[in-house]
């Protein structure tokens, strides 16, 4: 509730530049929806538990005896403890997995591949569509097209994270992980390395620049830095 109340305050500044709850692409968007629904549900459950606790102090104790205890076990343990929690959790689990499925990097005709290589403390990006192009700490992508970022590392573990576009995925030496991102609009989006990597960790950041179709083609042709 407190968190919800503060949102408008935060929107006033430029803070949403790095915010996971101010999505600028489909993946971040559906995750933000998941978050708001879970926040509402969690608040409701928290209030329920609090009310039950408070009521326990307002009552004068119930009937005693074995029959009363068996009745209490049915209500509190089988009903609330097992029934209620399992119903809520089953629904949430299924929904979470369904969202996860939608975010996977499935092949498609429109998909653009780029490569990201983390190292202490630089990100290098290369583009299979434009062999030989390499940018440092700046990833260029076309807007409103699905992008598969092929992520790896040359030294320690890093993590590729553009909060407004999608969740994060680790850069691990010897492995290549694929993350699907997409930006609705052209623009600049802040990116971080999100796995602790030593003394330069805080400054290990990058920018994602999403272009309109024409500008993207120009970039591939080598016209832009």
């Amino acid at each position: 509730m407190v968190i919800g109340g503060i949102t408008p305050l935060m929107l006033a500044g430029c803070e949403e530049r790095v915010s996971a709850v101010h999505p600028a692409g489909p993946a971040a968007d559906i995750i933000a929806t998941l978050w708001w629904v879970m926040l509402a549900g969690a608040t409701a459950i928290f209030l329920l538990v609090t009310i039950l606790l408070v009521l326990a102090f307002r009552r004068g104790g119930g009937p005693s005896g074995e029959a009363a205890d068996i009745r209490r076990e049915t209500v509190w343990i089988k009903g609330l403890g097992l029934g209620f929690t399992m119903a809520v959790l089953a629904a949430l689990t299924v929904w979470g997995l369904w969202i996860g499925e939608r975010l996977l990097p499935r092949p498609g005709p429109d998909v653009v591949a780029v490569e990201a290589e983390g190292r202490q403390w630089v990100w290098r990006f290369t583009y299979p569509d434009a062999p030989g192009r390499m940018t440092e700490d700046e990833l260029h992508i076309p807007a409103s097209r699905p992008i598969d970022v092929h992520i790896t590392s040359t030294d320690v573990i890093h993590s590729f994270w553009v909060p407004r576009l999608a969740g994060k995925l680790d850069a691990i030496p010897g492995h290549v992980n694929v993350l699907r991102i997409e930006a609705w609009e052209p623009g600049e989006y802040a990116g971080f390395s999100a796995e602790f990597s030593g003394t330069g960790y805080r400054r290990h950041t990058f920018t994602v620049i999403a272009h309109e179709a024409a500008a993207w083609n120009a970039f591939l042709a080598g016209e832009m830095p």
């Binding site: 089953a90 997995l97 499925e101 996977l104």
Partner: peptide
Amino acid sequence: VWSLLPVVTTSLCL
């Protein structure tokens, strides 16, 4: 049942 249900509902190897 619960923990291994994904074998029938989830994509494999993606």
